[in-house]
């Protein structure tokens, strides 16, 4: 009798525990979704707002009943922003620039990373410490000397020897960024060298020894064996270099303040917009006639959306590599 009762009590207790665990799990799942949806909303809100503004007609600006979804749809804002930014040539130029820099940077950083990972030469540790130093020193420290350097560019006085002039002015060309990228000293290059070094150190040495025995030289081994194996860090570096270069304002305003590049033009867009829009609307050149500031803000927002659109489209296709690549590079391990 007692044993039976104890057993049924145990069963009840067990069932109670089970339902308790289940409901706790369910509660946690609900809480988790609430959190994730909330944070996602905070991240996506500015983007959604810009999309909403981009298709909103002028008549809707002062309509207080509108939230997000406009009543009158229009493509005028987009047309206006494209015209103001001179969008398509600008985008082409920017993409060309960013792609060139990204590839140069990935190449030079891969070489340096491999050099530091596999070769012990006198001073290699000291030199790697210096790589870390390049990560830690703020860019503003080198700004003025670099600017002056590229303003009259000259390697060891060769140019002035040949032409008698004081070097070449490279500002407002692609060259300053290309030179810094090709020599692995561009934007966040120290970080990329570090990523490559960590990855190459994790690869087994036997691969190279086998290649060496089969008669491949050092560079051949690198290009034929090591580089094809280094897809994860290459992907990481290319993705981040592209994105950071596309968004960079520091070096672009320093070296190419007058060039036709997205970051420079976007930063100047608000001023341009308030100046140009009255003209474009055909109000004339009267300085006392100003466009509605709310309308100007709308066009500026549309312009910003157009500027980040290529990145978002790209991200749509490669976003899963972002996580995977960082996991596989071994930065963490």
């Amino acid at each position: 009798m007692d044993a039976k009762r104890a057993r049924s009590e145990a069963v009840i207790y067990y069932k109670f525990r089970k339902t308790k665990n289940k409901s706790l799990e369910w509660l946690w799942a609900a809480f988790r979704y609430a959190l994730i949806i909330g944070i996602s909303f905070v991240i996506l809100y500015p983007l959604l707002q810009k999309v909403s503004v981009a298709v909103k007609a002028k008549e809707d600006i002062y309509n207080p009943t509108i939230y997000m979804v406009p009543v009158n749809f229009t493509l005028d804002n987009i047309r206006m922003a494209i015209e103001l930014l001179d969008y398509w040539p600008l985008l082409g130029n920017t993409l060309l620039f960013v792609t060139v820099i990204t590839l140069l940077q990935a190449a030079s950083c891969a070489l340096a990373g491999y050099g530091f990972a596999r070769f012990d030469f006198p001073g290699s540790n000291v030199l790697f410490t210096l790589v870390i130093l390049t990560i830690l020193i703020p860019m503003s420290t080198l700004m003025v000397p670099m600017y002056l350097h590229f303003r009259s560019f000259d390697i060891l006085g060769i140019v002035s020897l040949l032409t008698g002039k004081d070097g070449v002015n490279l500002l407002n060309t692609f060259w300053p960024s290309m030179i810094t990228a090709a020599t692995a000293n561009g934007l966040k290059s120290g970080l990329f060298i570090y990523i490559f070094r960590q990855f190459f150190r994790g690869l087994p040495k036997e691969i190279e020894e086998a290649a060496l025995i089969d008669g491949a030289g050092g560079f051949k081994t690198f290009f034929r064996i090591m580089l094809p194996n280094a897809v994860p860090p290459l992907l990481t570096v290319i993705l981040f270099a592209f994105v950071w270069q596309y968004n960079d304002t520091f070096f672009t305003t320093l070296f190419m303040s007058e060039s036709n590049l997205m970051p420079v033009n976007i930063a100047a867009l608000p001023a341009d917009a308030s100046q140009q829009i009255p003209l474009m609307l055909g109000v004339g050149t009267n300085p006392n006639v100003k466009a509605d500031p709310n309308y100007v803000a709308m066009v500026v927002d549309t312009g910003i959306l157009l500027a980040i659109l290529p990145l978002i489209v790209m991200y749509w296709f490669v976003q899963r590599y972002f996580v995977e690549s960082v996991e596989r590079t071994g930065v963490v391990g």
């Binding site: 070489l111 340096a112 790589v131 692995a184």
Partner: peptide, 15 residues
Amino acid sequence: GVAFILPWLLGFLFL
């Protein structure tokens, strides 16, 4: 090894 890091080394020195 020095050959591999040469681009970086040059950049580091001059830039």
